[in-house]
Computed example of a mutant assay.
Amino acid sequence: MRHINVLLAGLYLIGAAQPTASGAAEVRARAVIIPETKAVFGQVQSRTVVPARARIGGTVREIRISEGSEVKEGQVVAVIVDDKIALELAAAQAKIDALKSQLKNARIELERAQQLLQRGVTAQSRFDQAKTQFDVIVNQMAAAEADKSVIEQRAREGEVLAPATGRVLTVPVTEGTVLLPGEEIARIATGRYYLRLSLPERHAAEIVEGATVTIGQRGLSPTKSGSVETAREGRIAKVYPEIASGRVIADVEVSGIGDYFVNERTLVWIPVGKRKVIAVPTAAVRTRQGIDYIRIAIAQGEQDVPVILGETFSDSEEEPLVEVMTGLRDGDRVILP
């Protein structure tokens, strides 16, 4: 575990091995201060989760995604149909057709009035009236075509688009569902994944931004998560100042966390304090009939002492070390095999 290694790098944990009268190597156990870690479960979260919403009301005709699908920004994820839009389009087209007929007649009347005016057999007011009628119908035609364009745009908005690139988390609707404008079609995780920790309030003082934590592999079982010795490193990116229900919330950034499961839990070992331990090389431990022993030198010679072992760690310049919880004292002469 790297954060333990850093603290141990400058400490004389165990004296240099010295040969005993029998020729075996001998070291002295020394009490040192190491970080105390707490194993908690962190939940995988996405930086941002955005909804894909319906832009019009209607009935869901088609859903083109499912939970877990990857989507690109602007991709059509569902189609909503409002049957009234088809009727409105038909009415708009009928109005345009009627105005086209009126426009054709108005153009003929205007051309006739212009010819009569040139011959001098009609008044200027008659020509002006025909031209005004023609202009009115032209403007009505433009307004009707604009109204039809608005209806066509509403029909196109029945296609629900992905607001950003990401992975679909939930699709709370099915085909045939009736929706109102603005209702949610899908939730899409679009941001970078990170771990969120929820720790007891008593550890608030020991949690700081930038601190290093160790993270197990994916999965809840110890066989899948691994041990603290084989865990990956992460960094506390943010500690939230508000304590809710006696819990401190912190975010941890870690590489290789994946991009599929959200709310997946994994083991995280986080430093919450320091403690004094007595440690010896793992080679000093002998196990007989399920009981661990360490041989020490005493005035009368050598003696095997039963011990209870704790955490195992290592220094980059030393062999693996094991914490001795009971059975040894600071300064005991440990005989290596």
Rank of each mutant, 00 (worst) to 15 (best):
Q118L: 03
R119Y: 10
R119K: 15
V121H: 10
T122M: 01
T122A: 12
A123N: 15
F127A: 15
Q129P: 11
A130K: 01
T132M: 11
T132H: 05
T132N: 13
Q133E: 13
V136R: 02
V136F: 03
M141F: 13
M141T: 11
A142H: 08
A144F: 10
E145K: 15
A146C: 08
D147G: 13
K148V: 05
K148Y: 06
S149T: 11
R154Y: 13
A155N: 11
E157Q: 14
G158E: 01
G158Q: 00
G158D: 00
V160K: 10
V160G: 06
A164I: 00
T165W: 02
R167Y: 06
L169P: 07
T170Y: 09
V171K: 08
P172H: 12
P172Y: 11
T174D: 07
T174V: 09
E175W: 00
E175L: 00
G176T: 10
T177E: 02
P181I: 00
E184G: 03
I185T: 03
I185F: 12
I185E: 06
R187P: 00
I188H: 04
A189K: 08
A189H: 02
A189Y: 04
T190A: 14
Y193F: 15
L195P: 04
R196L: 04
L199V: 03
H203P: 00
H203W: 15
A205M: 06
E206R: 10
I207D: 06
V208H: 11
E209Y: 02
G210V: 07
A211V: 04
T212I: 12
T214I: 14
G216T: 07
G219A: 10
L220E: 06
S225E: 03
G226Q: 07
G226R: 04
S227R: 08
R232W: 03
R235W: 01
P241W: 12
I243T: 11
I243E: 09
A244Q: 05
A244S: 09
S245Q: 15
G246T: 03
I249Y: 11
A250L: 07
V252P: 00
E253C: 03
V254Y: 02
V254M: 13
G256K: 01
I257Y: 04
G258S: 03
Y260P: 02
Y260A: 10
F261Q: 05
